[in-house]
Write a protein that binds this DNA or RNA. Structure first.
Lengths: 246, 246
DNA sequence: GAGGCCAACTTGTTCAGACAAGTTCCGAGT
DNA sequence: ACTCGGAACTTGTCTGAACAAGTTGGCCTC
């Protein structure tokens, strides 16, 4: 069973969803919520802290908390897994491995995956689609210790994340995403069925396990007419950062 | 003076920065830190919770906390303010208003800024540069109640955020950012000094005050060869979400 | 040497209380 | 009618304590 503060956070999220608390309205005071749920004020604070981090509600000392938005953010799992994301939207995810090969780790690979240079790492080029329409080109490099499990996956499997979890118990826990825009190259254009030089949204990411061990890094290119990304930030929670090109 | 837990969070951040705790190494236990700083365990937990949210450290029940990364995240102020961001990098920010006019709020404007349709809102087209080089085109729409203060700002002022704070005490507190890629149009290309159809990183955002009142919304287009965005996510903290085009 | 089990350690959850600091709103006084 | 001050309210900070739940490493056995 989940922790009490998570249950309360969920109940509040649902209450906001069903507009019991409308956008702009004020949430009950901590002490009221504590009494209502029969818990201490600290537990309520943990619950509302979660909603604050998600950007659902705003908080200022002295004033009642305000509902800022509703229907926020998918789970991390949905962000990580293309297939789970598609499923949550009622769309069908497809996937197809175009090329796959082992290469010795470059200096860049070894830095990102925390491996010794020269260790063989698995490069995979995968096309992903929604309802048959290709929308994403994934160029992924897997660390040597997970590569065998990746290799054994069917070339047309829709969900790699799912299969890796089933076969090895691997759970992705952290991710760093660097986002920019690039023009589609010849290969990009061909595989995504778009014109060359079309703008693509590029997401370069490194994913690690719960222990902080890097699993993979990837260069993902999205058709910008099909997919966009959304980030919610506040003074207390700024996951987003602007960077200059090196 | 800042809260004790913030001081401790800062000290830990600096310690990680100067590699006293290296990436992959383990942080001292909560009880040790509590004893070291002479505070209770709860206060230490508040401090490390902040670093966890920033993605600096990873946390699993039962195991010592692990340092995941270093040199993370600017402040929210730096993200919001182009000038502050540039300054933090030791670069000089420039700004120039190309066009500015009042227009009645469209349905879209009124929804995003929570105003009545037809209320006059201020449209501003601004070019921003780093060390003289144009890198960003900002098309911003300001709510009527802040527009007069914006209008009185010099056309070449480097920092609008700064001046708005000084003249009205306005502080930006929350922001929703939607990121995608677009091809440069004729006006974009001309003002940024790039070729037409070059890929641009587009960030559409709405910014609100601490009270949750929308102040402005903006369509920002970055030269993708000059600027990128970075988001750090985890199972506990996912500010990032993928979206399909409507 | 391999495997399994347990004890020590560490983080997660929750409580109850106290005070600090900021906001809101009403009422008194001008 | 307007402003100002203060009381009541609300969130922020911090303490100290207890138990739950997960991890780690070493010891013992086979």
């Amino acid at each position: 069973m989940p922790a009490r503060h998570e249950e309360i956070a969920d109940e509040l999220r649902r209450a906001i969803d069903r507009e019991e608390y409308t956008v702009g309205s004020r949430l009950p005071a901590e002490t009221e919520l504590a009494a209502h749920y029969g818990v201490s004020r600290g537990t309520v604070r943990q619950a509302v802290a979660a909603l604050t981090a998600e950007g659902l509600i705003g908080s200022r000392q002295g004033a009642r908390r305000v509902v800022l938005a509703s229907r926020r953010s998918q789970s991390f799992a949905e962000l990580r897994s293309f297939a789970q994301w598609a499923h949550a939207m009622g769309r069908e995810a497809t996937g197809h491995v175009v090329a796959q090969e082992y290469l010795p780790a470059t200096a860049q690979d070894s830095a990102r995956l925390q491996l010794r240079e020269g260790t063989p790492v698995l490069h995979v080029l995968r096309v992903r689609g929604l309802d048959g329409e290709p929308v994403l080109l994934e160029r992924t490099v897997y660390a040597d210790w997970i590569a065998p499990a990746v290799e054994s996956i069917d070339a047309d499997a829709p969900s790699v994340t799912q299969l890796l979890y089933e076969s090895t118990g691997l759970v992705f826990a952290y991710g760093e995403h660097v986002i920019d825009a690039v023009a589609a190259g010849a290969q990009d254009a061909e595989l995504l069925g778009i014109r060359r030089t079309s703008p693509l949204l590029r997401v370069r990411r490194v994913t690690t396990t719960r222990e902080g061990r890097p699993v993979e890094w990837s260069d993902d290119r999205y058709r910008s007419d099909a997919v966009s990304f959304s980030v919610h930030n506040s003074i207390d929670n700024n996951a987003l950062a602007r960077k200059t090109a090196e």
